[in-house]
Design a protein around this nucleic acid. Sequence first.
DNA 1: CTAAAATTGTGTAATAGTTACACATTTGTA
DNA 2: TACAAATGTGTAACTATTACACAATTTTAG
Lengths: 242, 242
Amino acid sequence: MATSHRLDMLSPSAQNPNFLKALVSVDCVIFGFADNELKVLLIKSDLEVYKNRWSLLGDLLRPNEDLESASYRVLKERTGLSDVYLEQVYTFSSLDRHPGGRVITTAYYSLVNIKDHQLKLSHNELHWHPVNELSNLAFDHDKILQTCLERLREQIQEHPIVFNLLPEKFSLRELQALYEAILNTKMDRRNFRKKFFLMDWLIDLEELETDVSHRPGKLYRFNSIHLKDLKAAEIFSSEEEL
Amino acid sequence: MATSHRLDMLSPSAQNPNFLKALVSVDCVIFGFADNELKVLLIKSDLEVYKNRWSLLGDLLRPNEDLESASYRVLKERTGLSDVYLEQVYTFSSLDRHPGGRVITTAYYSLVNIKDHQLKLSHNELHWHPVNELSNLAFDHDKILQTCLERLREQIQEHPIVFNLLPEKFSLRELQALYEAILNTKMDRRNFRKKFFLMDWLIDLEELETDVSHRPGKLYRFNSIHLKDLKAAEIFSSEEEL
DNA sequence: CTAAAATTGTGTAATAGTTACACATTTGTA
DNA sequence: TACAAATGTGTAACTATTACACAATTTTAG
């Protein structure tokens, strides 16, 4: 039995045909929230095989960047956004997942506030789609989307990340509608409020909603004390640290 | 702004120097449990830069396999194991993570029953190391190990997977010691027992331990009713399904 | 054979968290 | 001015978690 770790023997034999040199890509599942629905940003595939089917936003990794940088680049190029919440979810590597050849892709999901960025999207073929009405995406993107949605559902149970999907100021109704949209459930209003106040995630802005055709609710913002929790978790899993 | 999804333009331009063709590897964090400690299986790096440092078990992806197959192959080759519990955790892609060149690696963790497989390891440079006493592994393997350990800790809170680390028959003491080793905590014995019986994860074998120098405890096995939960979750996130 | 060491097996009370549930109030609109 | 729509609020029942102690079983050492 071989006693060596093959990676140790790697250099400089990068031409060895026993080892795959693959194209690597990132695919971003960009979530947004509008009309009380969870949406995902998609683009029309212009690959012939996937004519008229929708696709996630992705791109091939470049020689000088890592996966996270590539994801940020895709987001920046497609939506104009920087400083977005981004999380790596899973890497997909089926031999036949890309009709053009062997491409391994790492899926990230991103949470953005749709309202902030409507303008950037108005002149190209990008569209926000309700996640619940989707199927038959190009490539293996149905599966990637489902995997990311499932991870998002897990993450919001423990971590204060949904705020990335909302404007700076929001009402409890909006916050609850967002949870309900992501988890596809209905929740009790009184218990929802109680829980959030207990968790101390909200700061009362002492302001009221405007532009609603009913009694306006109070506005809140995210309590950034809890950013440190996120940062701590992020540093932990970030590739640049430790 | 480009309106096309670059992946759509991929074929047949696989030689485009704007895009990285990278070596891809898997690294397996193989966990075991012995002497009341959580262990990880490591190999001595024989790369000169990492002389005398320990490394995770990994290998480069081959042209005809996906990441999961490669992980199973590594496990089979190194430990003789098939049918092991394996879970993808994270993909690491720093530009400088491998001294031999650009290698992107996907980390998996695996749970094995050490006792079943002692023989396979006796004649090579593989060793089980306590996870708590580790640092200064080769490559970025400290970080990979920490990331996998953290994921394991999350997973055991919700899913009945620790049984993969135990023999078929085990006592509640062993089970509790395992949880304590993984989570690095102490737990209350009565509450621990109550919780597991309530969750219905255990089947009483109506047998007693032997070879202990004290009052023997009852033996249990994992209630495989709950395999379906694992299967369901696995199908969901598996790349071959959906 | 007996006593000591080690560990098993067992229940309850206090606390904390979750769920179910209804009505008066505020605002905009017709 | 009254109707529609949504806000804001508290309590009781239930469930889950925690803290905690003692008698019984087995092995080992004397």
